[in-house]
Design a protein around this nucleic acid. Structure first.
Length: 114
DNA sequence: CTCCTGACCCCTG
DNA sequence: TCAGGGGCCAGGA
């Protein structure tokens, strides 16, 4: 049966975010069936196994901004990865109205293994 | 078991 | 826009 752990469900959702799109931590949590657990999403990304590539850079905060300190190496890496996908990033900000992933919920939920 | 720490979020001023 | 403050809760110490 579908015994995906909460963390695995988060990774599953993040893997669904298409190239050139982004999704806020809070919405990742909602889609993973963990409403109100935005913080847990950040933890899950940090603890994600390097084994398989996870598009963690497509996850940003609800303000449309990269959540790493602007002077950190992680910040620069995420900004670079987003730009490589054609996303415009200004001072760490991304336009959610323009790039936020808006999946067809009915279709999405049907395909979820949890 | 308790305490502390977050790649967060929402609301207020 | 920006800063606080309260809420949230799984892990590590």
């Amino acid at each position: 049966m579908n015994k995906l752990t909460p963390m695995e469900r988060i990774w599953f959702i993040v893997n669904l975010i298409p190239r050139g799109a982004v999704l806020p931590y809070g919405l990742v949590a909602d889609l993973a069936g963990l409403p109100g657990r935005a913080r847990y999403v950040s933890k899950a990304l940090k603890l994600a196994p390097q084994t398989q590539p996870l598009p963690w850079h497509r996850v940003i905060n609800s303000q449309g901004k990269i959540s790493f300190a602007k002077d950190s190496e992680s910040f620069r890496t995420q900004q670079e990865l987003l730009r490589l996908e054609g996303i415009t990033v200004n001072a760490g900000k991304i336009s959610l109205s323009q790039y936020q992933w808006k999946p067809d919920l009915a279709t999405l939920v049907m395909g979820l293994p949890f």
